[in-house]
């Protein structure tokens, strides 16, 4: 639950082995410039580290960036572990090279939205504001 007047807290995480961090860094900076508290994990983070960091940082939103094609394996692993360790409602977002066909499956696992190549950064900012204020009141 977002406490009133608290800044929205977001973690942008690079899951898996890929080093493509251009998108993740641009999104992280755009969210920070939009007034959110942003933690960026750096590349090559494993699911356990990401989950523990997200819980430790008490984030409202976890944005997972992945361009290696391992999204159907790695993202569910992160989400399941997060649900195991925390009751808090964290909005999970994904970005990267993710074919449209895989999106329904990711959403079933609990990814709230997927932002692919070409997404304007303000669209992500607005989406997060909408989701977090809806949840936190």
């Amino acid at each position: 639950m977002a406490v009133k007047d608290r800044k929205i807290r977001v973690m942008i995480a690079k899951a898996g082995l890929d080093g493509h961090d251009r998108g993740a860094k641009v999104v992280a900076r755009s969210l920070a410039e939009a007034g959110m508290d942003v933690i960026y994990t750096g590349i090559r983070q494993n699911p356990e580290t990401i989950v523990k960091a997200a819980i430790g940082e008490d984030v409202d939103v976890l944005g997972l960036s992945i361009l290696s094609g391992a999204h159907l394996e790695i993202l569910p692993k992160i989400i399941l572990r997060l649900r195991e360790l925390s009751d808090r409602e964290i909005v999970i977002l994904a970005g990267g090279i993710i074919p449209d066909d895989d999106i329904p499956q990711l959403k079933e696992f609990g990814v709230r939205e997927v932002f692919g190549p070409g997404t304007p950064t303000n669209k992500i900012v607005e989406y997060i504001r909408g989701e977090v204020s809806a949840a936190g009141g």
Partner: peptide, 20 residues
């Protein structure tokens, strides 16, 4: 990526990345 970072296909960190 596992081959590029020196992990065998059966390494835990290779999970989901093999042949991608």
């Amino acid at each position: 990526l596992p081959t590029q970072i020196g992990y065998d296909s059966d390494h835990p960190l290779a999970y989901g990345e093999v042949g991608k």
